[in-house]
Design a protein around this nucleic acid. Structure first.
Lengths: 234, 234
DNA sequence: GAAACTGTTTGACATCGATCAACTACGAAG
DNA sequence: CTTCGTAGTTGATCGATGTCAAACAGTTTC
């Protein structure tokens, strides 16, 4: 088992790539120059190794985060210790901002799915900013709205679609092409994708197999799609 | 099929019970007197009969709503027309506020599960209010946060728990007692509860049956629980 | 190059829940 | 009281997916 409280490698320095990601997240775009400075003052950059736990359910929620590189899994445990992913956050995604005006404790666990760099926001500071600066409030509302819609999508997908359909939908979302052949490179391990889609790794593997008959071939992380519009009819 | 655009019975008059519900929703509590008045100016009260569609996916989202009485189902359809509930809203619940700073179109369908009274908020007006009045922004953020957490709970529950466990959890949430015997009166039809829990009506029925062995008996909408703490161990 | 490790795939099997159909219970209308 | 319609239950069946175990592949380590 990992250490309970994550001893993060604080690096005060932020590299340009990470900074670009941070500035482009919906949470930061649309902030006025003034608020942007104040917001940046609430941020610490941290690097964490793969599998490191960022926080656990019911820990006091003093920070929320923005992924700058790598991926972070948000998940919950049942009584027997089985894990279910709630969301997977990649570069530019913020998580746990729902606690700015919510609970005082984390409501789920967060773990780095691979080596990751995070921007850590001081919850109190941002809360104050949100109460005083309309542009900050607006950014937060936009961000929360978007996450809420995504979460509702997730519920609907789980309840309406089979495993192959969910995989097809994921592929379609990650390939901008409208029809004809395309190829998608998965940005992470298949086991992580399985969790995102609410599947066991074996089920994801079988879903990919079943998509072979509509022209989908997989080699490692590279997924070749024979005909994008055929995928849409799954 | 129901009429596409709901011709709602506008009743400018709001009765005291409905008004009390409206004032107690998280969306309205915490507003200053000034903002409260402005917010009320954005509201129209409407009554709709059971099964009436409030709005459909991809319709322009000009309003969001607060349920004052009755229940409203939010749901989405798959290609074959099968419906999956995303959320069920009861008195005091707001829905579609995620579009204040989100999309311009509804992202799901809403239908009255029974005769209902709704407060209809003008999206534009509230958007302006949210941008100018910090208390309005704060109310919206709190509300969105709460809904997001609930939606994440829903995803986790669907993925972690079986049908009987979900039913047990619902019962536990609706009965404040800590241990020993208790009774819960379902506030709506079982078919609606089934949808809320992501189950077919038959599956809900069987889940209740399977809970008999832990002392749960059902007669109509009345659910008797022999031992609340036994339910928790399901 | 061999060994060890991790992630993925495949097979066999069990379980859960959806579906369809038949039956029952209850409430409303006549 | 009877009839009818709706909601709910029960049974039978089927399909989808989780689980466990074993085989396999790609990577890293030595």
């Amino acid at each position: 088992m990992e250490k309970h409280t994550a001893p993060m490698n604080k690096s005060l320095k932020i590299n340009n790539r990470d900074k670009a990601v941070l500035m482009r997240t919906p949470f930061m775009t649309g902030l006025g120059a003034d608020t942007l400075v104040k917001m940046m003052n609430a941020v610490t950059i941290t690097s964490i190794p793969a599998r490191q736990v960022v926080f656990r359910e019911s820990m006091p929620a003093d920070f929320f985060f923005c992924v700058l590189s790598g991926y972070v899994r948000l998940y919950r445990l049942n009584r027997e210790g089985r894990e279910a992913d709630i969301r997977v956050c990649g570069p530019g995604d913020t998580f746990a901002e729902c606690l700015i005006f919510g609970d005082d404790f984390y409501r789920f666990n967060a773990q780095a799915a691979e080596n990751a760099t995070l921007a850590r926001f001081d919850m109190r500071a941002v809360r104050q900013l949100a109460e005083r600066e309309p542009d900050a409030a607006r950014a937060i509302m936009t961000c929360l709205s978007h996450h809420l819609l995504t979460a509702m999508d997730c519920v609907a997908n789980d309840r309406l679609h089979t495993a192959p359909q969910r995989v097809a939908e994921y592929l379609l979302k990650s390939c901008p092409i409208d029809g004809g052949p395309a190829s998608v490179r998965l940005p992470f391990q298949k086991s992580l994708l399985a969790g995102m889609l609410g599947l066991a790794p074996e089920a994801l593997s079988r879903a990919f197999s079943s998509l072979r008959r509509v022209g989908v071939t997989v080699r490692g992380r590279l997924v070749q799609i024979g005909d994008v519009s055929a995928l849409r009819d799954i």
